[in-house]
Amino acid sequence: MYTTELKDKNQKSAGLSLADEDPEKLAAFEARVAADDFIEPKDWMPEAYRKTLVRQISQHAHSEIVGMLPEGNWITRAPNLRRKAILLAKVQDEGGHGLYLYAAAETLGTSREEMIEALHSGKAKYSTIFNYPTLTWADIGAIGWLVDGAAIMNQVPLQRTSYGPYARAMVRICKEESFHQRQGYEIMCVLAAGTPEQKRMAQDALDRWWWPSLMMFGPPDDKSPNTAQSVRWRIKRETNDELRQRFVDTTVPQAEAIGLRVPDAALKWNEARGAYDFGEIDWEEFYAVVRGEGPVAKDRNHARIRAWEDGAWVREAAAVHANKRAMRMAAE
C-alpha cells in the first residue's frame, strides 16, 4: 500500500510550476488525461507531474518494503505451519509489490538505487503505519485486516490512474492483495472466538491499530493542498476524507461481527448521512510519526540500511562475475 502522499521537507513547488511549461503541450497533456487516456513513459509530461509521480510511486514502494519488517517480525514465530506459510507468502508479496512499483518509478528516469538512497537518508517517506511495533500475533491479524484493508481502498481506484506503468503495477498488486486482507481478518476471527487470552490479544491489537489505520489516508482534505491537482491528473482518484469515511463504514460492521469493540467513544451511526460519525484523529501524533518519531522508526530505518549495506558485497560480486563471464565469452 500505502499512498499517504506525504511531502518531504525539501520538496518545494519552486521550479515545478505549470506556468513554466509549454502551454500547447500542457493543454494537450491535460486533455489526454481528462479523456481518461493513459500517459506512457516516453510521452511528454509536465515536470511537476513527473516529480509528483516519482514521489508518490517511490513512497508507495518504500512502504511495501518497510512494511515487510513489522510482519516479518512474526514469520519465525507464527503459531502453526499453515499460518507460517501464509505469512511468508504474504510478506513475500509485499516485496514483489515494492519491486513492481520501483520498476514503474524507474520508467520516469529515477533508478532504484537513487530511490533506496533517498529512503535510507530519510529524504523519502513511507507510510507512517509501519513505524508502530508488532507486539503480539494478533497484530498480524490486525495489519492484514485494517492496514491492508485501508490499502485496498486506496489502491483499487489507482488501477485507472493516468500513468500507464503505475496503473499496470496497481492492477497486478490489487489482484495479489485480494488474499491479504482476508487472511488477516481470518486470524482475528479465530482469536475473537478463542480463549480469553486470545480475545484480549485481538481487542488489544484493534485498540492499537485502529487510529494509525485511519491516519493512513493522510491529512484531512482541507490540509491537503495538492489534492485538486492530483485528482485532476488521476494520480489520486478520491480525497483522503472520502476514502477514510468509506474505510470506517466498511470496517466497523466487520469488527462488530466478531465481537470486537472499535476504540472510539464518538463512533455512532448517522442515519441522515448514511455513514458513521467518528472521533477526531490525533493529528499531532500523525505529524510526529511523519517526522520520524514513530515508536520503531529508527529500528525500521536501521534494518533497511543494514540489509542494503550487508548485501553490497553480494551485489558487487554478481556484477563482477557477470562482467568476467562476458569478457571471457568475448575473448573466445
Binding site: L88, G95, A307
Partner: peptide, 22 residues
C-alpha cells in the same frame, strides 16, 4: 531461510529465498 525475509541483499533475492522456504 524464512529469517532472511525482508533482509536479503536485493529485492529479487529476497523473493527467491522466500520461494525456497515456502
Amino acid at each position: 531461510l524464512s529469517e532472511w525475509c525482508g533482509h536479503a541483499p536485493m529485492l529479487e533475492v529476497d523473493l527467491a529465498l522466500a520461494n525456497i522456504a515456502l
